[in-house]
Design a protein around this nucleic acid. Structure first.
Lengths: 152, 152
DNA sequence: CATCTTTACATGACATATCATATAGAAGGA
DNA sequence: TCCTTCTATATGATATGTCATGTAAAGATG
């Protein structure tokens, strides 16, 4: 079915990509869940917050950064707030605002999970690729992201 | 945080990959939803069934093919069954069995959705990559998939 | 400054995914 | 055959994601 629309080379790349990312995603999630009490979504939020200055971020800024919808992030934050990983506070300047702040618990959690997660990323992806391939991935990704960001 | 664990080159590739696939996934899903009444999950099931011989497949076989858990597929099938896209029937040989069969409605649906979806895949990914890059993607994907499949 | 528009965020309803478990038939002995 | 174990599948509970919409503050305009 698919092959009528893509050349054999294209089809192979497209199917390969899909299989890879489906498998990789679930493997990373499983590894992470085994080694911590975090989901991939939790990890994404926490690691971005940990990198942010002051370990806090506006909702929209963080949503942009991780390429999530604002709604998705808001729901995620609500759940994480209940577990004590992050907290919300008012912004000083903008009354509509909402600052997401990494809590002490959240920091401990992400710090504990990072080594294992990074080892997992290495093992299942990074270490399987040559330096040239890594460069190619970066270039492709940036091109595709630019294209999609300029879309609409 | 991340950068302590990956070299700059590795980090760039990893972050790029994540951003790309997050964005790509949601763009494709949006396009598909706009042009049809199918989700990406629906599309995956239907297109694989359409390619299968007899346009039917055992649950486990299909789950393996699309790299889903059996449970996920079973739930998905239940929902699609309600909408008339597929139906379940008994296997002749194995009493435990379950054959998922593509219905006439399902076939019409996937046939209608494919051109638009493929155009979307082209536009947002395939046409942005050079032939060399496509080959690299295939090679990388196959390597990673092999690695992950041999895991446990 | 009264009104309109935009921006930032939250929320409810619903679709989807995951994990643990239940059920029933198949298979392989003792 | 009876029993144990394995395999194929379904399902309930719960976590997660999406879309549409609501609320309130900020900004713009007459």
């Amino acid at each position: 079915m698919t092959s009528r629309w893509l050349s054999p080379t294209e089809d192979r790349a497209w199917r390969g990509y899909r299989r890879m990312f489906t498998l990789l995603e679930s493997q990373l999630a499983r590894d992470l869940a085994k080694q911590s009490d975090l989901s991939m979504a939790d990890y994404t939020v926490l690691s971005n917050l940990a990198e942010a200055e002051g370990r806090k971020s506006r909702v929209t800024a963080l949503a942009d950064q991780v390429q999530w919808s604002q709604s998705r992030l808001s729901h995620q934050i609500s759940r994480m707030e209940k577990r004590g990983l992050v907290s919300r506070s008012q912004t000083p300047d903008d009354g509509r605002g909402a600052l997401i702040v990494l809590t002490r618990t959240g920091l401990r959690s992400i710090a504990g999970a990072t080594p294992g997660h990074m080892a997992s990323v290495r093992k299942h992806l990074i270490d399987l690729l040559s330096p040239d391939e890594l460069t190619t991935v970066s270039e492709m990704a940036e091109r595709v992201v630019d294209h999609l960001s300029s879309e609409q």
